[in-house]
Nucleic acid binder design. Structure first.
Length: 495
DNA sequence: CATCGAAGGACCC
DNA sequence: AGCCAGGGTCCTTCGTGA
């Protein structure tokens, strides 16, 4: 798939560059710098809570979790390289004297509740992401106080420490994406303030490793690395290439990274989409053993369903991790909601049966297509919420994403072979400042212009029409372009 | 052909 | 100095009903 890149990399991408620049400009000027968002992250949360109960743990390397996997480690243990999300056996190799404490969720929940009570004082609609992490919108509070954002956040963190004896780190910035990154900057017991100003933000992102952005993991990092993109600032130089290579959604995401854009609203009305249980065990392959596991899991899931007040789900799915570590996911959707333990078990067994013979080390079962949450009000309020949601999303993740054809179609649709067409005209212009007949790829008009005029025309055209409108127009005017770029998703590069 | 369901992944905490 | 566990979300692609 790198071949796709090789093909593109030597091409003339001046048109793409223009198109992207226009898009960047649009996004840049639409920037919202009015909000003050804070991301608070408790330091080594589970481990710190355990240390509260047993202060002697502070003096030794310690981690919380199980032999299979650790959730957190204290800072003593981190000196040995013991990190969270590390299997216990490996951690013990790194640090033989490591003490591993089992999880005590009720304790963590209690500590979390105290912290959240503090958050609520400063932002009643704060957004908890997990027990130890939350976003706060401090804009309102700041408007009624003399404090600077930094002073206010210091105050919040002091309060947390007084109330719980636990320390927190925080990031303060114009949106969630930036605040999240900032909270990592002065990690244990510190905070970082990124002013809500364009210049400061652009400077910040220009040298920021792309990997710091939430949503960019190992795979994406590697793919981008092969495209010479290491920092958010690098995205600008590679914008045309990225535009050609990535899906609209991925590309939009890249531009946001470059510009330091992120969402500021917390009302993501997130009812859950699925509920599941899964367990790892020593290899099983006998059907009877598998079915017994199914019964166990179905039982657990049914209990969970009840505890979460979920009526049921229309889609029943299984996940099998083979002893080879390959993963198989299967699912089936029904017209009515499935909720009873027996029904779940029966359907799951059918799904499992089709996979036989298998030897697996993990089995998971899942219910999705859950019923919409009916929060006891009729019509009006729901309608209101919906509206609020859509108009608040002025910078939602998928703006150009609804375009079914690829962005490349802008190019491919106008003339038979637009690339050669464009480059031909430009090449001609190099030889002499002659006037060449070209077809504008945007408005589809035939033009007799020299290179400079043509570029000017492009600018005008781009300013008049939004990218979306362009694409729509192209779509209805043109026959479907034969698109040789199939895999523009990041993931495709991996194969 | 717009939609949906299924499968496969990446990623997050 | 290996990618694990368990609970999720979201994105993408493909195939199939219309």
């Amino acid at each position: 798939m790198i071949r796709q890149y090789d093909k593109i990399k030597d091409m003339d991408l001046s048109f793409e560059t223009k198109l992207v620049d226009h898009k960047i400009n649009e996004m840049d000027t639409g920037r919202d710098l009015t909000q003050c968002i804070c991301h608070v992250d408790m330091d080594a949360f589970y481990a710190s809570v355990e240390e509260l109960d047993d202060p002697s743990l502070k003096e030794i390397p310690m981690a919380v979790g199980g032999m299979h996997m650790l959730c957190t480690s204290n800072y003593k243990a981190r000196q040995f390289g013991v990190r969270s999300a590390m299997p216990g056996y490996l951690a013990l190799k790194l640090c033989p004297q490591l003490k591993i404490i089992p999880l005590h969720f009720p304790k963590y929940r209690a500590a979390s509740a105290k912290v959240r009570a503090i958050f609520a004082k400063y932002d009643p609609s704060f957004l908890p992401m997990s027990l130890d992490e939350a976003y706060l919108n401090l804009t309102n509070y700041l408007s009624t106080s003399e404090l600077t954002p930094e002073q206010l956040v210091q105050q919040i963190r002091d309060e947390i420490q007084q109330e719980t004896q636990l320390t927190a780190s925080a990031g303060i910035a114009a949106n969630r994406m930036l605040a999240k990154i900032c909270s990592d900057f002065n990690k244990p017991n510190g905070q970082y303030f990124l002013p809500m100003e364009r210049e400061a933000i652009m400077k910040f992102t220009s040298n920021l490793s792309i990997r710091k952005v939430s949503g960019v993991g190992r795979v994406t990092e590697r793919v981008l690395q092969t495209l010479d993109v290491k920092t958010c600032g690098d995205i600008l130089h590679r914008r045309a290439i990225l535009y050609r290579l990535l899906s609209p959604i991925s590309f939009q995401f890249m531009l946001k990274c470059y510009l330091g854009l992120g969402s500021t609203n917390f009302n993501l009305e997130s009812d859950r989409k699925s509920i599941s249980v899964e367990r790892t065990f020593s290899a099983l392959s006998k059907p009877d053993d598998l079915y017994r596991k199914v019964d166990e899991l179905a039982e657990l899931l049914a209990v969970d369903l009840g505890r979460n007040q979920i009526q049921g789900g229309k889609t029943v799915g299984i996940k099998l991790k083979l002893t080879s570590f390959d993963v198989r996911v299967r699912s089936k959707t029904y017209p009515s909601y499935i909720s009873k333990k027996e029904d779940i078990a029966r359907i799951v067994k059918e799904l499992v049966q089709k996979e036989l013979p298998v030897s697996i080390r993990l089995m998971g079962i899942r219910l999705s297509s859950l019923p919409p949450k009916v929060d006891d009000d009729h019509g009006v309020k729901k309608y209101f919420k919906k509206r609020k949601n859509t108009d608040a999303g002025e910078e939602q993740p998928r703006k150009i994403s609804t375009v079914p054809s690829s962005p490349v179609s802008v190019l491919t649709s106008t003339s038979v072979t637009p690339d050669t067409h464009l480059t031909a005209s430009i090449a001609a212009n190099e030889n002499a400042p002659s006037i060449v007949a070209v077809t504008c790829p945007i408005c589809s008009r035939s033009l007799a212009l020299d290179n400079h005029q043509f570029n000017q025309h492009l600018d005008e055209c781009l300013n008049k029409v939004t990218v979306k409108a362009i694409l729509q127009q192209q779509q209805q005017n043109q026959s479907p372009p034969q698109d040789q770029t199939q895999g523009r998703s990041l993931l495709d590069y991996y194969r």
